[in-house]
Design a protein around this nucleic acid. Sequence first.
DNA 1: CTGAAAGCGCTAACAC
DNA 2: GTGTTAGCGCTTTCAG
Lengths: 338, 338
Amino acid sequence: MKKKASLKTIAKNLGLSPGTVSRALNGKAKAYRISDETVDAIKKHAEEIGYSPNLIAKGLQASRTFTIGLMIPDIANPFFAIMAKNIEKAASKANFSIILVDAEEDTDKEKRQVQNMIGRKVDGIIAAPVGTAFDHFLEIEKQKIPLLFVDRYFTDSTIPYITSDNFQGSYDAIKLFLDNGHTKIALIKGDETAETVRERTKGYRQALEENGISVEEKWETGNEFSMENGYLSTKELLNLPNPPTAIFALNNLIGFGVLQAIKEMGLTIPADISLIIFDDEPFLSLLSPSITAVKQDSEKIGEIAVAFILEKIDNEGCELSPVIVPTEIILRESVKKI
Amino acid sequence: MKKKASLKTIAKNLGLSPGTVSRALNGKAKAYRISDETVDAIKKHAEEIGYSPNLIAKGLQASRTFTIGLMIPDIANPFFAIMAKNIEKAASKANFSIILVDAEEDTDKEKRQVQNMIGRKVDGIIAAPVGTAFDHFLEIEKQKIPLLFVDRYFTDSTIPYITSDNFQGSYDAIKLFLDNGHTKIALIKGDETAETVRERTKGYRQALEENGISVEEKWETGNEFSMENGYLSTKELLNLPNPPTAIFALNNLIGFGVLQAIKEMGLTIPADISLIIFDDEPFLSLLSPSITAVKQDSEKIGEIAVAFILEKIDNEGCELSPVIVPTEIILRESVKKI
DNA sequence: CTGAAAGCGCTAACAC
DNA sequence: GTGTTAGCGCTTTCAG
């Protein structure tokens, strides 16, 4: 009743060889024409002694671990949590397990964990990279481990990615403001070295330009995907001599900050200021008034990511091209008609 | 430049033996008095060919994988997401990796994944169990794998757990209502087979009884930790001939449902109805009015959990007793003074 | 129908 | 100072 419950144990107890037991337990009885009695006896005994195959040993010899590394900058962010949920779901359906890393928005931790993943011989890696450094990711490619970016990505590498239609989502949001008569529209951005931020910013600018509205420099502000940035930027914007009538928050955290600032200043949405947030959250519908948002389909991003990575694991040669997942405007009550 | 980058490769290329290379790379050069030149040469070459030790092989031979299984019923629930974040953080600090399972509130998946964890020879398992079935967890103990429950737990097993002070948190919330003059206080519960729900319910009842208020049967309702339950129960409660003046929602999801129902019915908090939610969420402070909540310290639960499981991994014999983590009332604006 | 043996990559015990 | 060997638990030829 010790830690002993290996193939060998079963073999010895039954007077068989490990090979036979292995074959019987892996449904290869037919192929090797092992007698039904033997198979039954083996299965029965395995059950009895609580045998559970050692996936580590299996992995060692197959050089396949049925494991996918998942690197997320912040699992407490609902956007990533929902994505992670769908990734785990799809992966486990294919009998793969997820090794989760929360990089804590820290490139150093990310680097260390990339090494860790490589050492653990994961079969593939799905990562939402933290920052703009990606040398460590090239190492993954060098090791021939399938790699895929989600959400965040780099255009100056050939690593495939799956992301939202950041440009269009942003464009649509601004268009909504414009259609409601707004012309003084502010943007609170994240770190512009991120491609997603650049794309979203592009959408903002293009929508304005197409409608003959020149972009007021003061209204394009912010520098970080954080609540604090949203909060401070909002206060600044609304204290401007010529304040905007509408704010577009470039992600959920910034949006929270905006909401906090507005609440604190005693202003009301949309009477005093209109708001759209990039990233939908269930609770945005519970606010009074509810907040219009650009919803990223993180479920779908997660699903596609797993399908992709499995494809790449099976098919060493296969080249994948980036996938852009459409966003959707969730119309609520935070945009005032002027 | 193929998949070859093992100890053996290095050994061969350098005309050494795998043993020496292993020792050099694991800082045992001193102990074995390997010459500095050799060590340098080895390290240099390892770097060159992009060698990365195979943790799988290491694990096989050490029968230790530096891996902790984490089983969560729903990673998209912020309460669990935050806990998971802190668990990953603490684990990675100790050079352990997390294998994440989202049980999707499905006992069958949980069972399957328990087997999977066992097969993967994780060094320990931290689980927030889905339901009331726990036979499959006993299997883990039988395999001598350290096991620990967080949040949810079973009193009729000896498996240690770390959870919030569910009784006290609930008691405090009701006390707050009472202190504000409420006597008609409703409770919307989750599934009562869960120990956490029972404890929270106990806190509710005891606070009322101690204050000479008899518990109105109609006001104790609900049967599930879900938004829908919160929504439907609220509608029922508020349509009662003699409706309560205060609602206590027994978890965050129920709370969301309550908020939705109240919003839909055009009522306002706290003028028409007072509310406290068990589980704090950042956004509760952004609502107008902000919502008073019982905050569970999921950060601390996560941290303690990892410390515990590591202790148990190191110290096979060690017996751990349950830990109850205090809760905290976050006072906001959702309780009316009568 | 089943057994024996090699080997996945690594470490540790034992040599010299 | 370094090499050799055995073995972790499994699968997979190759032999019967």
